[in-house]
Design a protein around this nucleic acid. Structure first.
Lengths: 214, 214
DNA sequence: ACAACTTCACTGAATATTCAGTCAGTGGGC
DNA sequence: GCCCACTGACTGAATATTCAGTGAAGTTGT
């Protein structure tokens, strides 16, 4: 019978949805409690589901958390690609990518998650690889935008790869400070620092990037 | 009796020494297992001491680990001050401070410890403050060296504070990458990136900082 | 179309383990 | 004789994982 494949939600789709729901709940719990203090029971409670169900879908807690991070990384990578390859001249695209790096708030979900993951990655090969791929993707997007700008004559540099490396490292360092609420560094200042470095590195007149935004 | 104060090791000194020994052991365990996976029993075993003794000297595990991080931070801060205020012209001192930032190996103890602490600091006010003070100290040292250089005419910038902020954020981002063993970033490249940015920011001719080292 | 059968997502309680923290006791040095 | 650093067995709580059982959804045979 063909009925099953027509159904709005086949069994397989329901399982898929439940897994996604559990991953999302896991993410929320991790944001609140941190990777290492997240309990399986928390995820179950957040989903209003029995503890056993978590293990029905994910062999172990580690698998659950790793999958969650993998999913998030993929989402972020897709976003990075979208921003870098979107419309606009290189100036506008660079501005867009750099803005996206700035934590949206004191406890930007993405940043909290990845700062946590950096620590876990020190001892977990798999997690290290996941955060590395995310890292590499952002780096690559910066590189592409910068290369395009050099090709179009908007930017001037002899080492686009190096510039991309430095800008993305700078942004990580700044994002970390903003997320950890270091005194004297606001989102606005982070934005400003990024602009200054990019202008210096790419031979732009001071303010060109600020103008690009408008 | 005055004897006690003469003795090579008074009781108080012995306690002091034991505490230091436990803190050092705690550090080693944390480096191996990570902050969140460190067990009291590990620290006891590493010191060849009973589990009870840990709690004799430190009320709780959290106190032990927090004290350990505080101690390490103080040591690092002292080192930063020594480097920044030592002999040499601003160029040499800047070079010295920036070099010290570079992880000494793939698993530089200091870096591993603080990357871990960043994560923990997301949810622990005390830890956040400790790493913040360390951060602030390095930042301040960079600022002092840069200001001195501007005063002496070696460096050119209108915003020494901003330059210090950007260089220290860049160094954090780079150190993180080196410590997490990101492909395509070696200690040498980190050194190079830092040099390039500093030269750009401080109006130095390319290579000036490399020469300063010799 | 219906009954019998199978599958499987899910529950909730049991299990097993891991650890931080406690405490009664010990012994060496002042 | 008294401190007090130290031991090590013990407790109790936390919590990942297992598992027997349940019922609804889906399938098969007639």
């Amino acid at each position: 019978m063909v009925r099953a494949s027509e159904a709005r939600t086949s069994r397989q789709e329901q399982v898929e949805q439940r897994r996604a729901e559990l991953l999302e709940a896991a993410k929320q719990v991790v944001l609140e409690r941190g990777l290492s203090h997240t309990r399986v029971a928390d995820v179950a409670a957040a989903t209003r589901v029995s503890g056993g169900l978590i293990h029905y879908h994910f062999a172990t807690k580690d698998v659950l958390l790793t999958e969650m991070l993998r999913t998030e990384a993929e989402r972020d990578i897709a976003k990075a690609r979208r921003l870098a390859t979107g419309t606009g001249n290189p100036l506008a695209r660079l501005d867009r990518v750099m803005r996206e790096f700035v934590p949206s708030s004191r406890n930007d979900q993405t940043w909290v998650l990845w700062i946590d993951a950096w620590g876990a990655g020190l001892r977990d090969e798999t997690l290290r690889t996941i955060s590395e791929e995310l890292d590499a993707a952002w780096n690559e997007m910066l590189f592409i935008v910068i290369s395009d700008g050099v090709a179009s004559g908007d930017f001037t540099t002899t080492d686009p790869r190096g510039v991309a490396d430095r800008i993305s490292a700078l942004l990580d360092g700044l994002g970390l400070r903003v997320t950890l609420q270091r005194p004297g560094i606001s989102r606005k200042q982070m934005q400003e620092h990024a602009r200054v470095i990019a202008e210096l590195e790419l031979g732009l007149a001071p303010g060109s990037l600020a103008d690009a935004a408008t």
